[in-house]
């Protein structure tokens, strides 16, 4: 009797320890989500306006758009042509500045950034994927993928290594790496473009109609790639006008006439 009592106290801490380490699905996920919410969002825009001056007069492309995207989210922005989605993407990607409103990128307000500062942001924290791939013609895949490293001051010795790793992660076979970009298929080109977008380990991936120039099957494959990236923890914002494509994302935002209709908030 005394012996078993004596062993009991030593068992308890072990049990307690085991209980603590045992992952229970719901609380853990909830805790993670809460942690993410507390962390500053990757994108936090507030009341963005963008007015263009053209010869025909001024055009209000964005009329007070606000939205938040947290790390690991996969968001699709849908809208017809002329809705302002391209303008929004350009501002999100630091290619353009809003006429008014605030943009907090990873918690830092960038409205006051100079052109060179924004360029640096694009080089290190943002990866673009375009509808028409935009690979350098007559240039090898390796050199195409390495291009962002030129502008992010990556040491020469590391460049090829990183490029190969990025291409490999996109499932592209090694014998293709020295091929020129115009010698491969459309689907392969887009995968090279995605590898290029990932090479600087960006905080945000912006995709503008990435499947627009691909057939349905290849398009599906590219979207599957994005899904994999999302599962790996990447933050993705996808612009599209096709509902089938938008359906792959976690969250869909509608934009029309310069305003977001769902998911985000309006300041009209």
């Amino acid at each position: 009797m005394t012996a078993s009592v004596k062993t009991l106290p030593t068992e308890m801490p072990v049990l307690q320890a085991k209980e603590q380490t045992l992952p229970t699905e719901m609380p853990a996920l909830q805790a993670e989500k809460q942690a993410l919410q507390k962390e500053k969002p990757v994108i936090d825009i507030f009341n963005l306006h963008r007015i263009y001056q053209t010869k025909a007069g001024s055009i209000q492309a964005l009329r007070g758009v606000s939205l938040q995207v947290h790390r690991g989210e996969y968001v699709a922005i849908m809208g017809p042509s002329g809705s302002g989605k391209s303008t929004l993407m350009n501002i999100l990607g630091c290619l353009d500045k809003p006429t008014s409103g605030k943009y907090y990128f990873q918690g830092t307000e960038i409205s006051g950034y100079s052109a060179d500062d924004m360029a640096d942001l694009r080089a290190t924290r943002i990866g673009f994927v375009f509808q028409s791939f935009n690979l350098l013609p007559r240039t090898s895949l390796l050199r195409n993928v390495m291009l962002p490293l030129v502008y992010s001051a990556c040491p020469l010795s590391q460049r090829e290594k990183r490029a190969r790793a990025a291409l490999k992660s996109m499932g592209l076979p090694e014998q293709l790496y020295s091929h020129k970009s115009n010698e491969i298929s459309g689907g392969q080109m887009q995968r090279v473009a995605i590898a290029r977008a990932l090479i600087n380990n960006p905080a945000l991936i912006l995709a503008d109609e990435p499947t627009g120039n691909l057939d349905t099957a290849t398009g599906e494959m590219v979207l599957e790639t994005f899904a994999q990236l999302k599962r790996a923890g990447r933050t993705i914002v996808l612009i599209t006008h096709e509902p089938d494509v938008a359906a792959h994302a976690d969250r869909i935002l509608w934009i029309r006439d310069g305003l977001i209709l769902e998911g985000g908030t309006n300041e009209a």
């Binding site: 052109a115 360029a119 640096d120 694009r122 080089a123 673009f128 350098l136 962002p148 992010s152």
Partner: peptide
């Protein structure tokens, strides 16, 4: 032109 736009999107500064 497109190449220049691309390079800028990849982080090329005006000086570059």
């Amino acid at each position: 032109t497109r190449e220049i736009g691309l390079r800028k999107s990849l982080g090329a500064r005006t000086g570059d």
